[in-house]
Design a protein around this nucleic acid. Structure first.
Length: 877
RNA sequence: GGGCGAGUAGCUCAGCUGGGAGAGCAUCCGGCUUACAUCCGGAAGGUCACAGGUUCGAGUCCUGUCUCGCCCACCA
């Protein structure tokens, strides 16, 4: 089969993915006991999702680990699925409706939800196709959706259980309200953004004369003020406690109280208390029995409690309130003020805190054990620093608001009786039965209108994808999972909650290792976001460079830092690298023809011994790095070995033997080394490696099922590596002379190599043909004393010296300059080394091997200096 | 107000438990050497942010400072 001169991903990728799917290579068995098991639950992408760089990174890393373990021989399963993504999906469909000029309220709940399912049927698989394009080797037969019947059942089960345990409660508390989405959102869904606002100083008259001035950033909330607070120990205001002020405009009586929460340093040191619209005020209100006056409608407009401002949008109301205060002489001053304002993560509308009746989950009882398993290392974060991040948050965890005023999601499994008594149950029938029992008769039940936070299904993901609450063979075989990959911003949303859920419902951890990826940032180092317009589309990158190139560059760029830049030049590097690999394969195929010789029995040639030694080292290093999740180092090691050790040196040396007729050993080694490289690279770049594997016609059918290289009987060969290093030094020396002195490529030269080390020279003599081919020097003379010759270029090596007679090409003066510069450098090294060895402290405290190494270095420098000096002398310097 | 990460060659970044500063790109010089010009050979380029400290020895460990990025927090 003929390979094209360049690697063309488009011709290879889709074809090979189809091959994998048709072969069911990623289908995992259940119930296997005689193998290690390895499983991963995918972080389910939103059904509305389009592959972004975060997904690309995340799933590339998961796939590398999954493929690695599959090749290690583990029974390996990657469980895939998608998330129904409550608000996000509802927003998408609402937007679609808006283009038709209608809102969800126009068509009603049932029809709307139907519409979303239609949308899902149409577009929900796009993200799956994109993951396949990336090469992800999930077991697609196990694809799940967080809103499918099985998971919905699990969600109801969990809700009822937690309700019965008293961990879920309903009540009116201060929540974050998004007026655009018209729903409560959890603390985690609020993003704080610094904005330029203003501090308004409002004058509150006191009932018995005088006034008090209070600073606020949200003047319109004064409509909901029900008190005023000062710090109890603030002497300036002590006399005010117990008195009453009057609210401007609405003329409400405001008791003045003392509260610890007040910061005497801020503003005027007094606080207007608006329990319905501020978390601190809510606390103070509760503690002091103040009323709560909610002034907002669900859409963010002012309600009837806002008096003359009722019906106005909150923005307009702010302005109107300020104008009115000013007109009445109640506005003392306005100062510019920069502060953080909460925004809805999904739609970026400013969030309003308000009192609302919602469902909550108590977190502290769940958090305790979840902290424990991380602390004792049963669940491990990589990089390790995230452990502290996790524990800090868990220790200060607050209750989770789990209800959402949406239509798309798991409807809360609670039915209310005529007296509003709630019945939590798996089904309406079960609730009816419970109600019948309670009331002693048949009653009309009404289901709660709200749905659950999307994360209320995701936090059950690792075991619900395996069929929980049934005790399935999947659970038995693959739970707990071994590995989870996610970004740090999901630790609290998801990772922490999964740990809590798994411990609570299954009494075991959900996964052993949590790998936290760096955050991908733009070229300026800023977070990528659609609103900033600095996103990069991985699908476009895949089109341009190929999925493998994207994967390799991702792996290569993944460090244990907190962020990484979008790979740009690295993408080109990766593409070039894969092309290099492709061409190496072409070369090997050209040499092999129909033969598939494999590793020869006897290996004697220097370069053969060398490359096998390097291969053994590479296998060991790559496995080490993969086991430690050092993706960049593993990729780097393979790049280096393939390109430099194999292509630059081994192939070039083997050519000599291959061109001068058949050489079974060289062919066998080429074949073997190529195969090993393919296997080592396969987890990183599955498409190109599979393609070459197929062309070679290797067994097994798919490289994805082949065993990953392990330690072999051929291990490191220090002697060959040392001899090869000498050869490389000599070759590079001659090439440098050629380049420095502008000796034309075609010009015939001869080389004299002088060395006292027969151990090193002897293999070079045997590799004479390689030396000639690699340097273009036709005549090599070893070991003989150099007779003084005019016009000789010189190079001092670590183990000897090179002489290249070039007659009139040599300019003695510049030759002296060249050698002089090197002498200066080496002399400095020698001086440093000598000084070190003269230091008694060093000799007595440094480990013996370090001292020994230093001695060898010193001797080497000394010899080099000696040779350089001799050469300079012979040039008459 | 706390916390985290980064600061190494012109650019993007490696550098594991402390023992002679690395890669790729860009630059310069030379090459169509029949696997690859997405290539090959060579060269130049760095007070490892700054200041102290620990150590025989610090890019690597400790303390402090500066710059950038990010996270968390009830200063309205």
């Amino acid at each position: 089969m003929e390979l094209s001169k360049r690697y063309k991903p488009a011709e290879v990728e889709a074809k090979n993915y189809r091959f994998w799917e048709e072969g069911n290579f990623f289908r995992a068995a259940v119930g296997v006991v005689d193998k290690d098991r390895f499983s991963v639950a995918i972080p389910p992408p939103n059904v509305t999702g389009r592959l972004h760089m975060g997904h690309a990174l995340n799933n590339t890393l998961q796939d590398i680990v999954i493929r690695y373990h599959r090749m290690l021989g583990d029974e390996t399963c990657w469980f895939p699925g998608t998330d129904h993504a409550g608000i996000a999906t509802q927003n998408v469909v609402e937007k679609e409706l808006a283009t038709e000029g209608i809102s969800r309220h126009d068509i009603g709940r049932e029809a709307f939800v139907e519409r979303v399912w239609e949308w899902k049927a149409k577009y929900g698989s796009e993200i799956i196709d994109q993951l396949k394009a990336l090469g992800c080797s999930c077991d697609w037969s196990r694809l799940r959706f967080t809103l499918d019947e099985g998971l919905s059942h699990a969600v109801r089960e969990v809700f009822v259980k937690l309700y019965d345990e008293g961990l879920i409660y309903r009540g009116a508390y201060l929540v974050n309200w998004c007026p655009r989405c018209e729903t409560a959102i959890s603390d985690l869904e609020v993003e704080h953004e610094e904005i330029d606002g203003a501090l308004y100083y409002i004058l509150y008259p006191l009932e018995d004369g005088g006034s008090v001035t209070i600073a606020t950033t949200r003047p319109e909330t004064m409509l909901g003020d029900t008190g005023i607070a000062v710090h109890p120990e603030d002497k300036r205001f002590a006399h005010l406690i117990g008195k009453t002020a009057r609210l401007p405009i609405l003329d409400r009586a405001l008791p003045i109280i003392g509260a610890e929460q007040v910061d005497p340093e801020f503003g005027t040191g007094t606080l207007k208390v608006t329990p319905a619209h501020d978390p601190v005020d809510f606390e103070i209100g509760q503690a002091n029995g103040l009323n709560s006056v909610n002034i907002l409608n669900d859409d963010g407009t002012i309600n009837e409690n806002g008096g003359p401002f009722a019906g106005m949008d909150r923005e307009a109301a702010r302005k109107a309130v300020v104008d009115r205060l000013k007109a009445d002489g109640h506005l003392e001053k306005v100062e510019p003020y920069r502060h953080a304002v909460g925004h809805c993560e999904r739609c970026h509308t400013a969030v309003e805190p308000l009192i609302s009746t919602q469902w909550f989950l108590k977190m502290k009882p769940l958090a305790e054990r979840a902290i424990e398993v991380v602390r004792d290392g049963r669940v491990r974060f990589v990089p390790e620093r995230w452990t502290k991040f996790y524990i800090d948050w868990m220790e200060n965890i607050r209750d989770w608001c789990i209800s959402r005023q949406l239509w798309w999601g798991h409807r809360i499994p609670v039915w209310y009786g005529p007296d509003e008594r709630p019945f939590a149950a798996q089904s309406e029938e079960a609730a009816a039965a419970a109600a019948r029992e309670h009331y002693g008769r048949e009653v009309e039940l009404r289901q709660d209108d709200d749905v659950l936070d999307t994360w209320f299904s995701s936090w059950l993901w690792p075991f619900t994808i395996m069929g929980w609450p049934e005790e399935t063979p999947e659970l038995e075989t693959y739970y707990p999972t071994q590995f989870l990959v996610t970004a740090f911003d999901i630790i609290f949303f998801w990772v922490a909650r999964m740990i809590m859920a798994s411990l609570h419902f299954r009494n075991e951890i959900p996964f052993e290792t949590v790998y936290i990826t760096p955050l991908i940032v733009d070229p300026e180092g800023r977070k990528m976001s659609k609103s900033k317009g600095n996103t990069v589309d991985p699908l476009e990158l895949m089109d341009e460079y190929g999925a493998d190139a994207l994967r390799f560059s991702m792996a290569h760029a993944t460090t244990k830092g907190r962020s990484m830049r979008t790979p740009t030049t690295q993408l080109e590097d990766a593409r070039n690298f894969l092309n290099k690999l492709w061409n190496m394969a072409r070369f090997v195929l050209m040499q092999l023809g129909d033969e598939r010789p494999g590793l020869p029995d006897e290996v004697t040639e220097l370069e053969d011994r060398y490359i096998l030694s390097r291969l053994a080292a590479t296998v060991a290093t790559v496995r080490e790095h993969l086991d430690a999740y050092n993706f960049n180092l593993a990729a780097e090691t393979l790049y280096e070995f393939t390109w430099h050790d194999v292509c630059d040196w081994y192939v070039e040396m083997a050519k000599v033997r291959l061109q001068s007729g058949s050489d079974p050993a060289a062919k066998g080694i080429l074949h073997h080394v190529l195969k090993q490289i393919l296997l080592l690279l396969h987890p990183f770049v599955p498409f190109v490696t599979e393609e070459i594997w197929q062309v070679l016609g290797e067994e097994p059918t798919s490289i994805s099922l082949a065993p990953f290289p392990g330690p072999s009987d051929r291990e490191r060969d220090a002697e060959a590596e040392a001899a090869m290093a000498a050869l490389q030094e000599a070759v590079t020396g001659v090439r440098a002379i050629r380049a420095d002195l502008n000796v034309p490529q075609k010009a015939e030269i001869s080389v004299v190599l002088k060395s006292g080390s027969m151990a090193l020279v002897e293999p070079l003599v045997r590799s004479l043909a390689s030396l000639k081919a690699l340097t273009g020097a036709a005549v090599w003379d070893f070991g003989s004393a150099m007779t003084e010759m005019a016009g000789t270029a010189r190079k001092v090596l670590s183990f000897g010296e090179l002489f290249v007679p070039l007659a009139d090409l040599i300019d003695v003066a510049s030759e002296i300059k060249r050698l002089g510069a090197e002498l200066a450098e080496v002399s400095a090294d020698l001086a440093a080394s000598t000084a070190k060895l003269a230091n008694d402290q060093f000799l007595s405290r440094a480990p013996a091997d370090v001292v020994e190494k230093e001695r060898r270095k010193r001797d080497e420098f000394a010899q080099k200096v000696e040779r350089l000096e001799a050469n300079l002398a012979s040039l008459g310097a």
